[in-house]
Design a protein around this nucleic acid. Structure first.
Length: 602
DNA sequence: CTTCCCAGCGCG
DNA sequence: AAAGCGCGCTGGGAAG
């Protein structure tokens, strides 16, 4: 069953559709849900909840009891019993407020995210949908999803269900427009060639992307368990007591004093690269930049305190007290995830640097009493994906080892694991010089298919073509300017053009691997969510996904549910492999750590 | 004053 | 030893 949910001047409209996107003839009348009912019942509670439970920001808008919700949340909750697929413009516009009202949904179809995939996928490049989208993007000179499906996002964590964009004016898209958009997308998918299961793969990608959008909203709603007092203890250990706003903490100030003395620069501000560079030069330290690795070359006595200063300064500015105040509330860090934020299919994030939590402060990520953190990561995911993509049977044999690099090293590198790793990473990133560059011929001799696969992707990119991930996400085409830059006349221009072309080759070379790894991770996540939902539904456990980082997931689970969660994580990884590649002799092992504290994982 | 870019460093 | 992919965030500093 397919239910379209769209904004309407009076609130929202819900319409039942067929699989192809037509109004269901048995139930053709759209249902209009007034917003007045909701306004009355969706008042915001800030501070302690009436039932005495501590308030969490994400539940601030929820009615006191699950059954008292009226209006849209109630209507959606009721219709969810029929297990529909909800079709909406953007998950971010609807789902956070539904979650805040206590309504969890099973599945959706995100028109904006799916439209962006279909507009660029090579699998649908021949369809009217993609060609129209192509024209639109060229007209706008912007990479936009088709049919102008791109209003600015509302703040995700505030406002009621009806405070979405355009509520003061007319809704941005009518139900009819969204229905037509859905029908057009379905038509494009249907036109994808059945050859090599392309259509099924694309369908899988769209489902996984939409599931990802729901998971992102659910993880933001749940938040990462974060113990503020542990974070503060870590900060105090490294930096000293919390300083007044705008001042350096004691340990940074001490290092600064020492630096000024050692560099004979009384007024030095080491946070300014320019000032620092001048001070270093005055003291005969001839560096071209102030980067760590270059500073390490020198053995001047000021280098050690300088590196220590940089390390601590980074902690203070990026994840210090200010960060804690801004991003952690009531024991949860609730960042916003941006699904589809990276061209390769990886997620990005907004606010708080959620995907860059430094190891130093991971000790603050701590399970609630009676709970554990289950931290799982897909070991050596990208090289394993390369093996599966290229069907290099020699490398597949090597990859049967739990440690893929050791397996590769055993054949072709005389057992030298470090060399094998360097060579393989170099192949996926396009290393040309240094040790990695020198190892390429050696790798290609033993594993010609794997190396050939990424080489071919690089050649395509250099020629201005697009490349495509396993499930059908394609790299963006080069800009008009790129092609113009390739038509050079002078020798100097030619060199420049070649360098630009090679740079794009490195991008497309990496895209096929990173993008297919992202495909795998999206399926892993969606399969894991399905299993965790089933466990919640049958009452066996209340485990929640709380964090996702490219090839790593974190589940917050009651002690009693740990074993079944581990099984769910592993089963989901296997399911993801088979969904992408079928039954192939390549393992995708996950390493699982069960910990109280994130810093004890790996 | 605001806006933008850079250098540097965190993560995968 | 320091090249070769994808991101976000910060403070400094220049430009508007």
């Amino acid at each position: 069953m397919y239910l379209l949910l769209a904004a309407h001047p009076d609130g929202a409209v819900i319409q039942e559709l067929t699989a192809g996107g037509l109004p269901n003839p048995r139930n053709p009348e759209p249902q209009i849900v007034s917003r007045t009912a909701d306004r009355d019942n969706m008042t915001h509670h800030v501070g302690p909840r009436p039932d005495g439970m501590p308030a969490r920001p994400d539940t601030a808008g929820s009615p006191a009891g699950a059954n008292s919700a009226t209006g849209l949340a109630a209507a959606v909750r009721d219709l969810e019993k029929r297990r529909p697929r909800w079709i909406w413009h953007r998950t971010q516009d609807w789902y956070p407020a539904l979650l805040a009202a206590g309504v969890e949904l099973e599945r959706c179809y995100d028109l904006a995210l799916c439209g962006a995939i279909l507009a660029h996928s090579e699998f649908t490049a021949h369809t009217a949908y993609a060609q129209n989208a192509e024209k639109l993007t060229q007209d706008d000179d912007l990479q936009q999803p088709p049919r102008a499906l791109q209003p600015p996002p509302p703040p995700a964590d505030q406002g009621s269900l009806f405070d979405d964009p355009g509520m003061n004016a007319e809704p941005r898209h009518t139900a009819e427009e969204l229905r037509a958009e859905y029908a057009a997308q379905q038509e494009a998918v249907a036109a994808a060639s059945a050859d090599g299961n392309r259509r099924q793969r694309l369908q899988l990608l769209l489902a996984a992307e939409s599931a990802g959008a729901m998971i992102a909203a659910e993880m933001q709603h749940a938040g990462v368990p974060w113990r503020e007092e542990l974070h503060e203890r870590i900060l105090a250990d490294y930096l000293g007591p919390r300083p007044p706003a705008g001042q350096r903490p004691a340990k940074l100030e001490a290092l600064n004093t020492e630096l000024r003395r050692l560099l004979n620069s009384p007024g030095l501000n080491p946070d300014s690269p320019q000032e620092l560079m001048r001070a270093l030069h005055r003291n005969g330290i001839e560096v071209k930049s102030t980067r760590q690795w270059e500073l390490k070359e020198s053995n001047h006595p000021a280098i050690e305190p300088l590196l220590a200063y940089k390390k601590l300064s980074r902690l203070h500015t990026a994840n210090g007290w200010t960060w804690l105040d801004a991003w952690v509330r009531n024991g949860r860090f609730q960042p916003e995830y941006v699904v589809g934020g990276v061209v390769s299919g990886r997620w990005a994030s907004r606010g708080g640097g959620a995907l860059q939590i430094p190891r130093q402060i991971r000790g603050a990520v701590h399970a609630d009493p009676g709970h554990k953190l289950i931290v799982a990561d897909a070991s050596q995911l990208e090289p394993r994906v390369l093996v599966a993509l290229s069907q290099d049977s020699t490398m597949a044999e090597a990859a049967r080892d739990q440690d893929l690099y050791a397996g590769i090293a055993a054949k072709g590198f005389g057992g030298d694991r470090a060399k094998a790793k360097m060579a393989l990473l170099g192949a996926m990133y396009g290393a040309t010089s240094g040790e990695a560059g020198r190892l390429m011929p050696q790798l290609a001799r033993t594993y010609p298919r794997a190396v050939g696969f990424v080489e071919q992707a690089a050649r395509a990119g250099e020629a201005g073509k697009t490349v495509t991930s396993r499930l059908g996400r394609s790299s963006p085409p080069p800009s008009e300017g790129w092609f113009r830059s390739q038509q050079s006349t002078t020798a100097e221009e030619q060199r420049r053009a070649d360098s630009i072309a090679r740079s794009r080759g490195r991008f497309t070379r990496n895209f096929v691997v990173q993008g297919s790894a992202a495909d795998w991770a999206a399926c892993w996540l969606a399969e894991l969510r399905r299993r965790l939902r089933a466990m919640r539904a049958d009452g066996s456990a209340s485990a929640e996904l709380v964090f996702f980082l490219h090839d790593e997931v974190m589940v917050h689970a009651p002690d009693a549910a740990v074993d079944s969660c581990i099984r769910a994580v592993e089963d989901a990884a296997n399911a993801a492999k088979e969904l992408l590649f079928g039954r192939i002799p390549v393992e995708f092992p996950v390493s699982v750590a069960v910990v109280d504290s994130y810093d004890n994982a790996k």
